[in-house]
Design a protein around this nucleic acid. Sequence first.
DNA 1: ACCATAATTTGGAGCGCTCCAAGAATTTTG
DNA 2: CAAAATTCTTGGAGCGCTCCAAATTATGGT
Lengths: 349, 349
Amino acid sequence: MPTLADVGKAAGVSRGTVSNVFNRPELVRPELRERVEAAARALGFGGPDPKGRLLRDGKFNAIGFMPPGAYAIAEVMRSPYGRELVLGASLACDEAGTTLSLVNGTDNTRFASIREALVDGFILGHSADIGLITSAQRRRLPFVILESDAGPDINSIKIDGRSGAVAAVRHLTELGHRHFGILSIRRTPGPPIVHMPGQAKRPLLAGFPLDDERLDGFKQGLAEANLSIDDVPIIETTPGDPSVGAVVFDNVPEATAILTMSDWQAITILDEAVRRGIEVPGHVSVIGFDGTAESARTTPPLTTIAHDVIGKGRLAARMVLDNEPPRQVVLAVELVVRASTAAPRAKIR
Amino acid sequence: MPTLADVGKAAGVSRGTVSNVFNRPELVRPELRERVEAAARALGFGGPDPKGRLLRDGKFNAIGFMPPGAYAIAEVMRSPYGRELVLGASLACDEAGTTLSLVNGTDNTRFASIREALVDGFILGHSADIGLITSAQRRRLPFVILESDAGPDINSIKIDGRSGAVAAVRHLTELGHRHFGILSIRRTPGPPIVHMPGQAKRPLLAGFPLDDERLDGFKQGLAEANLSIDDVPIIETTPGDPSVGAVVFDNVPEATAILTMSDWQAITILDEAVRRGIEVPGHVSVIGFDGTAESARTTPPLTTIAHDVIGKGRLAARMVLDNEPPRQVVLAVELVVRASTAAPRAKIR
DNA sequence: ACCATAATTTGGAGCGCTCCAAGAATTTTG
DNA sequence: CAAAATTCTTGGAGCGCTCCAAATTATGGT
């Protein structure tokens, strides 16, 4: 690999002049410039190596996106929510002329990834692991954490998940539902875990603020209707796991309404319902969470607790890019009623 | 920002030892290690700066994805096709522990982006601009170009677009269709451009191999049924432009079948059909291209010319990562018949 | 011609790190 | 207990570049 110095030698000029030819050509006399360019071509020199510039300037011109939980980037890209988040971030990056780096952080390499990522700042997906934040802080780069409570010194953006969850339950109880099933989020790899009422050690606190808050909202909403969450089956499942539908219908046949924590989970239920000839919302109502574009395209279109996911991603990127004093943003959620919820009509089977 | 040297001074050891503490802790005596770690903590040193290591090692551990055409990354993320491509690439990156950098290349900054991206290789979206390839070659990094003919010295992956287009037309003519509309891809920003038969300067060669090839396939397929593409209206439109549906139905009311170059275009047509009460496939058949996941979820599900988009993205990343001798891969396409195509039943209006 | 002024070009000084050969300290061996 | 072997630590040599003050060369006015 030829370097600036090599080209300089070949053209009989100094390193600095070659640098100028490439970066500020107006500074160098046209004929000389041409001679240098010729030398560069002859040597197959394709321009100053970014590595050198980088060390000198110290700017990567990139921000990193780190997946939430223990997910890999590919899993983020699969999920409707993740895609909109990344889309939003890329929108802001497009505007700023910055690169968006999708940083892979598998469980154990997560901290190392943060330490070594070639970025000027981070968007961190939510995490139960406080160490992540410490890691990010150590790096002394601007960062924002999504869907986590991280205190006043740290940039964070979250939605009002509790209100959203309450609104979801209210909507359903107002329609007359009394028998529910709840889909919470499984944070480790594996099949759905069914927690029936009365069973010990129900996952009422998963450790992830996102999940806990929504579960708490469900609890509150149920309480308002004189129902107890303790009587409601909870199924922990990875969003997108296609097997959850079967698990739900097999284990919670009496439910007339399914509360979820993501549109993707709700969509999975819809798919299984079609397979079994169960009508939505005739036999069972399903409510999503997040209000992704996908939720509007399903059959029937999903009722969901929506927020501006793209806007969230975009704001996150902007906060990192702008590097202003830390702030904590809480985004509003909105119940969007579509066609997947209705008054209960008949029991399944 | 403290450096290795600073920490070394504070701990009374050398730069090298501090480096070892962080990178090969087993090489340094536990008590010394602790002293160094304490000093690092005290100084708020969060580990060796990746910039330095980078210059030294020369590896970014990242590959860059550059959007096709003149699109920005955000546009890629919006498109079903683009998302699956990125998903595929991220899958390979996950496996390899590499970062995927979404490199922004707006028209004029495109070449500069290639010159300066902090990556070890590139996935280039297709382009009509040969300069892109030259740029990439100059950088002397492994790269692969998608959906372009770039000769035997260059990694490329493309689908057999011609056969796909022929198959699409055949499917429709076999169903009895004789009146078509074609959606080709507009490569500049702006609203749909309608090219009616007989008009001069129809975009039969857009300069993009991808478009040209498919158009050529449509032509061939039509010819097989004794139809001429010269009699078929062609509408150039950016995939995803929601206005194209109206343009199509207003300008080509006699068409009983719409050929497209992407699922997204087809989906847009579907949306407008719903709005106008036009039945698909009753009044008009619509056929997509690419076979993205979205195409299976529409109402009605789209008939489409499918290929393994995720696999393509994954293979692309692998080729860059593996850096083997250049090869040219042509991926098979497959006609997937779903419910958006049927025999023509009635004329619209 | 000659000097002031303007236009170009130069090369040193890092940017922060890792590698590595060599030196220092410690432990083992005969 | 000295010599040999082993374990640790050190600091020089870059990695390739950009910035900048200083040196060199060209231009212009008298």
